[in-house]
Design a protein around this nucleic acid. Structure first.
Length: 315
DNA sequence: CTAGACCTCGTCGCTAACAC
DNA sequence: GTGTTAGCGACGAGGTCTAG
């Protein structure tokens, strides 16, 4: 036989014939008419160079060769069916999976600890590698193999799926009793004056090391500008730099409220209107139907809900 | 009940045009 | 250069009918 030309669909029909011993019943079992099964049997006989079945009264009796095929063929088809179906479920209690996630320390500080807690209790065999965002475009982590990227909403390519998680407002952070601000009449939790904002040196979160953030464009609309003296690739680095200097920074309100009591920061409303940013999770379309990936996305969605509830005005 | 004759229609492979 | 889509013809699977 020539395996290259062999129609593997005939194996399904042969298995049905072996099970039923009748072209009529085999057809009923697999959804073909009797003549169609008969024709398929003729093709099988020609391809395998064996009569396969000999008619005996009202039944077809399998030849010795056909009998040798019975068990391995049925096993093979059962295994093929399981293979093509793929995993239908993911049980985090018993199934393992290694995920690669990409996101800033904003997520590392505020979201991942809750995920870690959930993993120890409910998903002991799941492992997550969290990598920092260092990317030219937001789709880069997914191109480079990340299963999930946590990042600001952006115009993603068609092959990227995304889901909104929560919104974040930028607020100003400064070290406690920063003389640059207290001398200018700023009161904690109040709106910082535009003059004080522009006079201060700024720390900027920028994984790419750029000296311009999205707030600079908004500032430019008012005809003013600021001085970015330092950029850092992590929000915790920005917070610490501000806590140990007279520099100030803009920071997502959830992160600022998390860090303020820990390292001694005062929080202020910015002097200009800054549109809130949408934080999303993004993933490659190829993992849309993966039960394991869906479990992870559901967990991220669930655990990020408290972050949406945090008020944007400092207390 | 099987299997051959004949018919219909879907699929496959090839080519060309087009988009990126 | 590569991938996608449309158009076309050839082929074959599967249907009905029917003889054995």
């Amino acid at each position: 036989m020539n395996f290259k030309n062999f129609d593997l669909n005939l194996l399904r029909i042969l298995a049905a014939l072996l099970k039923t011993g009748s072209t009529t019943r085999a057809g009923q079992q697999i959804g073909l008419s009797q003549p169609a099964v008969s024709a398929a049997l003729a093709r099988l006989r020609h391809a395998l160079n064996d009569p396969l079945f000999v008619r005996q009264g009202r039944n077809l009796i399998a030849t010795e060769y056909a009998e040798t095929l019975r068990e391995p063929l049925i096993d093979l088809l059962d295994q093929t069916e399981i293979l093509l179906k793929g995993p239908e479920t993911f049980d985090p209690k018993t199934d393992g999976y290694d995920f690669l996630c990409s996101g800033s320390d904003f997520f590392g500080e505020l979201l991942i600890p809750h995920l870690a807690d959930h993993m120890t209790q409910h998903a002991p065999l799941v492992r997550i590698r969290m990598q920092a965002v260092v990317a030219e475009t937001y789709a880069d982590p997914l191109i480079n193999g990340a299963d999930l990227a946590l990042l600001p909403a952006a115009p993603f390519p068609k092959w990227v799926e995304s889901q909104f998680l929560f919104q974040s407002h930028f607020i100003v952070i400064a070290r406690r009793n920063n003389p640059m601000l207290s001398g200018r009449g700023a009161v904690k939790s109040d709106r910082i004056s535009l003059d004080a904002f522009c006079a201060a040196q700024h720390v900027l979160f920028s994984p790419e090391g750029k000296f311009h953030g999205y707030s600079d464009a908004a500032l430019l609309d008012t005809g003013r500008s600021r001085t970015v003296a330092l950029t850092l690739p992590t929000f915790s680095g920005v917070g610490n730099a501000v806590a140990h200097s007279d520099m100030i920074a803009l920071m997502p309100h959830q992160m600022a409220q998390y860090m303020a009591p820990r390292i001694g920061l005062d929080l202020f409303q910015p002097p200009i209107v800054l549109e809130p940013i949408d934080l999303v999770m993004a993933w490659h379309q190829r993992t849309n139907n993966s039960p394991a990936h869906r479990w992870l996305r559901d967990m991220i969605t669930l655990l990020s809900k408290p972050l949406q509830a945090l008020p944007s005005r400092p207390a």
